[in-house]
Nucleic acid binder design. Structure first.
Lengths: 330, 330
DNA sequence: GTAATTTGCGGGAGCGTTCCCAATCGGCCA
DNA sequence: TGGCCGATTGGGAACGCTCCCGCAAATTAC
């Protein structure tokens, strides 16, 4: 910086002003400084800046360390959104979603002096870890506990699940079965609730809930059961991978989709259109979630006040393909 | 830090020594300092440390911004491996894999003063961007250009593809077709070569190469073609998603797998076991890649010498399931 | 025409560390 | 006993930037 100042014939202070776009610099000086910067290929040292300002242009993202489609998509979407706002992203992934490991990940980010924190930890265990956070750090929770008072961006799981269930009911099915995600995920709970809501709103009987864990394997396991129940004509699965496992189990038992059994998934993974049959599913808009999340976070960072407790809900859309048909005539 | 020093009755310098596990500190002093640290809940400021040492415990990862299974798995695996070595990860994703955007991502990382760089950019365009890198920054390339002189960790695409092709030939097929990935990806090129190698080693005729783009859609598109060719009895696809699209196309045309056509994929996505039929595929060990990558990077960081030009190749394994059978009798 | 702003710029301090160098204190060897 | 050596500790400088304050020149106001 001193070199630049010398070359431009000004003080280091003026260089700093040009860098930070301070208004009180005359045009000629500004140009001289810019020229010097370009000539020397000077790049400001963000570390030094972070030291003196006490903050950095980095946001920390805590995400589960998994190949799950949702979290993984979220992560890249976040990185992209942050990048567009001139922020870098520090990722601290978490092997297991318990309070302890989430707290550790948060600590690591705090050590790095991140300007704000995005926590994608859609399980109940995340709550306590977040509660013990220093008050003054900007924080946005993604798909977190709807009951907790914090800035929250969430996919409207309930609405999505309701749409899926209603779609099946509208096709003529008397009721809809559900294979859920893990019970401690808010996403899973919301989808269960939307399913229940739609069912009771339609006055349909509510079949027992089958529990999965997002994996195709769990869809397969539950599918072996469902395949043997002749009264099952419609199933809503908590995600597309469960639906895939279900499809396979049904195919093994010779039950045809959608002629005998209709299925709706959730997530719209890129492959869903190429399942056999192509899967009707619910598509959450991860980019919108990420954009909203970064927006809320930056608002907090800029204002300096962390606890806006704003909510933002992203509505998913139903994508209809070929896995839904009217129930077979009795 | 001054507070800690005061409380422990030593100088700031001694506190620093304790923090950095410098040998020349007497046991009593060390304990006093540790006690003071604990009592005050003091946490060292990594920013200040980074400023004075000129480096940080952060590594930058450049990865394509995609939900592609390979890169996404790689990314989380890297984060995990880095974490285990006490490093944080800064991710700079890249929307499009061209020279310009890769160079930008690298610049952003350099701005952040990362200690080292991992580039997951398995396309030809990455080369020039990497060539213009400052010489003194530790760098590990993943699945990069085998021709470039740089530290490189790569999945042995050729061996994997050869194993897949040989497996099909061993089942009795006279030849094997291939749907490749995008031509500019090294991964795709390697898989093509392995396929060709196995074919010519067996003296089998080499069918025309079909080109895909990793997507299920491209598998479907090429599948519609293959389904109409009665002589096709075995197909090796560049990844599992292509295989999924192919499965769907074949199913639409009433061609059964594996009775009429055998298929082998690549990647072993978690869902592959639940395709219809369960897919025989090649599994690359992403964790091993990440571990090796971080290891090589840390070696460079510690030694201070960047260009070891070491290579590390990770051998993938063939996972046999139900999508391969002998060809139908003529 | 003089005083009161405003504008443009520079000097110096300080952010929280680590590194270099010096100083003190025993113990040991001759 | 005296000086030398290693072990331990402390004092300052420096890393590269931003912020606070001050000062000169230019502008405006009366």
């Amino acid at each position: 910086m001193m070199d630049v100042a010398r070359l431009a014939g000004v003080s280091h202070q003026t260089v700093s002003r040009v860098l930070n776009e301070h208004p009180n610099v005359s045009e000629p000086t500004r140009l001289k400084v810019r020229a010097a910067i370009a000539e020397l290929g000077y790049r400001p040292n963000r570390t030094a800046r972070a030291l003196v300002t006490g903050t950095s242009k980095v946001i920390g993202v805590v995400a589960p360390n998994t190949a799950l489609y949702g979290p993984a998509s979220m992560l890249t979407a976040f990185e992209q959104a942050a990048q567009d706002s001139g922020f870098a992203v520090n990722v601290g992934s978490v092997r297991t979603l318990n309070e302890r490991s989430i707290a550790d990940a948060v600590e690591r980010h705090l050590d790095q002096r991140v300007a704000g924190l995005v926590v994608i930890a859609p399980v109940a265990g995340a709550g306590p870890a977040l509660a013990r956070l220093p008050e003054d750090i900007p924080l946005v929770t993604i798909d977190g506990d709807p009951e907790r008072a914090s800035t929250l961006v969430t996919v409207d799981q309930v609405a999505g699940a309701r749409a899926a269930t209603e779609h099946l009911l509208a096709a003529g099915h008397s009721t809809v079965w559900h294979i859920s995600g893990p019970a401690d995920w808010f996403d899973a709970a919301g989808r269960v609730r939307g399913w229940q809501d739609a069912l009771s709103a339609a006055g349909a009987e509510q079949p027992p809930l089958l529990t999965g864990d997002w994996s195709a394997e769990s869809g397969y396991r539950n599918g072996k059961l469902l395949a043997r129940l002749p009264e099952v004509t419609a199933v809503f699965t908590a995600n597309d991978h469960i639906a895939l496992g279900l499809l396979r189990a049904l195919s093994e038992h010779g039950r045809r989709v959608p002629e005998e059994i209709s299925i709706v998934g959730f997530d719209d993974v890129p492959q869903a259109a190429y399942y056999t049959p192509p899967l009707t599913t619910v598509r959450p808009d991860f980019d919108a979630v990420a954009t909203a999340g970064v927006e809320l976070l930056l608002a907090q960072i800029e204002s300096g006040s962390p606890d806006l407790a704003t909510r933002r809900t992203i509505a998913p859309t139903l994508i209809t393909r070929d896995s839904v048909a009217p129930p077979p005539a009795r």
